[in-house]
């Protein structure tokens, strides 16, 4: 599975690098005036912040007849550290279960249209479902090494293609008085994102994105206690407004 991921990443990398080779002689990229949170590019302002939601279709293998499509609030903040370094923080919240991630990313302008970033986010999720016959709590650590390529389709339309690996670092669940802890580092799957950011109204920009995640653990399904060690498809839609 890991080999397949690497092959796919290499394929995209080769194609994208080939594309930028054609543009070697073009001038350096102009600063982008609008704010963005996904596009891999040096920031002009110190903070870029967005608020929106993500909607993930949970697979039938796990939810069975009940098709759960609960949206998660999505607060995303990007902090400029230097021209090349940024801090990427994100909170996905459903109140009863939430996911916090934070990590550095290094950005590089390739040419007039293209740029890229490499990042590594560490995430902590927790859930507490002491409701009715569910007396359960769960928490865990995840790691998302990622690489993103950005392309300015038009002056203000920003396209980002991002690939990330999902590494499970630990998980702890509690049921009644009993608990189970696992702390082995394990490759857990991967995700491919395609995102568009563009001005929407006044200074606001809109984000529209799709993520194809292929993993054997997804934080929103911890309370279903599924035991599959096989890669399951989780499509996720992202909609947000840059504040």
């Amino acid at each position: 599975m890991f080999n397949q991921l690497m092959k796919r990443l290499m394929l995209s990398f080769v194609v994208l690098i080939s594309a930028q080779v054609f543009a070697q002689d073009e001038p350096q990229q102009q600063p982008i005036k609008q704010r963005y949170v996904f596009f891999p590019h040096p920031m002009q302002k110190n903070w870029h912040v967005s608020l929106g939601y993500t909607l993930t279709a949970l697979p039938e293998d796990i939810t069975e007849e009940v098709q759960v499509r609960a949206p998660a609030g999505d607060l995303h903040a990007l902090r400029k550290l230097s021209d090349s370094w940024q801090l990427d923080g994100r909170i996905k919240f459903q109140i009863l279960q939430n996911h916090f991630s934070l990590g550095p990313r290094w950005v590089k302008v390739i040419n007039e249209k293209m740029s890229m970033s490499i990042g590594d986010d560490f995430a902590w999720w927790f859930g507490d479902l002491n409701i009715g016959s569910f007396k359960t709590q769960g928490q865990g650590w995840l790691n998302y090494p990622n690489v993103a390529f950005g392309y300015r389709l038009k002056k203000e339309l920003l396209l980002t293609v991002k690939a990330e690996a999902l590494i499970k670092l630990s998980e702890k669940t509690r049921v009644g008085e009993n608990s189970v802890s696992k702390s082995s580092v394990a490759f857990n799957g991967y995700g491919a994102n395609i995102l568009l950011e563009q001005p929407f109204h006044k200074r606001r920009s809109i984000i529209l994105g799709f993520k194809a995640q292929y993993s054997n653990f997804f934080w929103q399904t911890w309370s279903l206690f599924e035991t599959f060690d096989r890669y399951i498809f989780y499509p996720e839609l992202t909609i947000g407004f840059i504040l």
Binding site: L11, S12, A192
Partner: peptide, 19 residues
């Protein structure tokens, strides 16, 4: 031309992930 290559790369990437 570059745009087409990029779109192709993106689609390839997503389709590969949706197997």
């Amino acid at each position: 031309m570059r745009t087409r290559i990029l779109w192709s790369a993106g689609l390839t990437f997503l389709l590969a992930a949706c197997q």
